[in-house]
Design a protein around this nucleic acid. Structure first.
Lengths: 195, 195
DNA sequence: CGAAAATTTGACATGACTCAACTGGAGTGG
DNA sequence: CCACTCCAGTTGAGTCATGTCAAATTTTCG
């Protein structure tokens, strides 16, 4: 089917597949749609899937003991999202995945993924590269948190992810940067003043 | 050789190898030793190797624009260390790798590693698992930075890595936690008072 | 339009930083 | 064995960034 073709070549852009591979991989991807505000996955649930974002915007966040939300990651078109730590360990997660906008996702089951790895090695390579990139971005985030004040982290964020910034609220950014909405508001005010 | 056997089974504990595999993999690992204070890798150098710690203690750190050092990771016996972001991208790095103690390492060259992956798939699986663990620990670090005050991060650190704590100075811990030595000193004082 | 959500503002509190001085040990050389 | 130095760690005083809480304002959207 032509539609399958389009999807797989979008999801695994850069990899070359045979027609059979495409059939097989597509059979393992399930399309799901969510509305704004929907929860894709709750903390403390078993994490069995990872999700490809075909359209929309999501975030993963952690709720601490005092009830505050801390955003770990955003995902927009062409990103994968899950509670990966739990996904790898086949464990219950600590993150909540929330739709910030109406979203279209393709989900793949953990055990199906292993089957796909075995039959279609390009997929394994593809995910290893993704994991390496995600690792690098976590490293940069840690170093940024250690080395930079909130104002710079904010500037880095809007520069690095303008496409994400366009889709989210300021309080999402604040909870990603590790500051309060009030502090972000003051930082923004100060930046505007300087223009 | 018997010694090869011991080393490979230590480095890749949990994986099963044939005698030929052991020969082949050993031929790619080079033993190197360093004294306390030695620099294994400097920032801005091409990152071509990763290093297995057979003995000793090291850290990777980042020097920011103001000249302050920020510790990204420590490594003790049985850990791997490198500037992974650069290692993956085959790029020049931003981290410095320093020996905190006299250390014995086994290094492996990036291109040799790929050869090993191709011939001995267990090694690839082994490193993928390591990467998943490292990813998880980065995630926890980010969430801890977002959700917890310095005192708790300190307690988490000494609880999670008592073996590392035993080998490093407090100023190393401070630069890992993202606080000054003075602040750490005050936190420690407060904790002692409460016993 | 009107209610709810998001953002901003103000006043004040607090945790962490800076800078400078001081303490205590470990090692060194006379 | 003592004096000296170096390094790590501690302490104090003052400052600054960010947090808290409450209220006002602006934006969003049914």
């Amino acid at each position: 089917m032509q539609e399958q073709n389009v999807i797989i070549n979008q999801v695994f852009k850069g990899e070359i597949f045979t027609a059979q591979d495409i059939d097989f991989v597509s059979s393992k991807l399930k399309k799901i749609t969510f509305d704004k505000g929907d929860i894709v996955l709750n903390a403390n649930e078993k994490v069995t899937h990872q999700y490809y974002v075909a359209d929309g915007c999501l975030r993963t966040f952690f709720i601490d003991i005092s009830g505050k939300e801390h955003t770990l990651q955003f995902a927009v078109k062409d990103w994968w999202i899950s509670d990966y730590t739990a996904f790898f360990e086949q464990n219950t997660g600590i993150l909540t995945i929330e739709c910030i906008q109406k979203s279209t996702l393709y989900k793949i089951f953990r055990t199906d993924l292993e089957e796909v790895y075995a039959k279609v090695p390009q997929v394994e390579v593809h995910f290893r590269k993704k994991l390496e990139k995600a690792f690098a971005s976590f490293q940069n985030r840690i170093l940024g948190n250690l080395a930079k004040p909130a104002k710079e982290r904010y500037l880095d964020f809007i520069k690095t992810y303008p496409d994400i910034e366009a889709k989210i609220k300021n309080y999402h950014i604040a909870s990603y940067l590790g500051i309060t909405t009030e502090s972000l508001s003051r930082i923004r005010k100060e930046l505007v003043r300087k223009l």
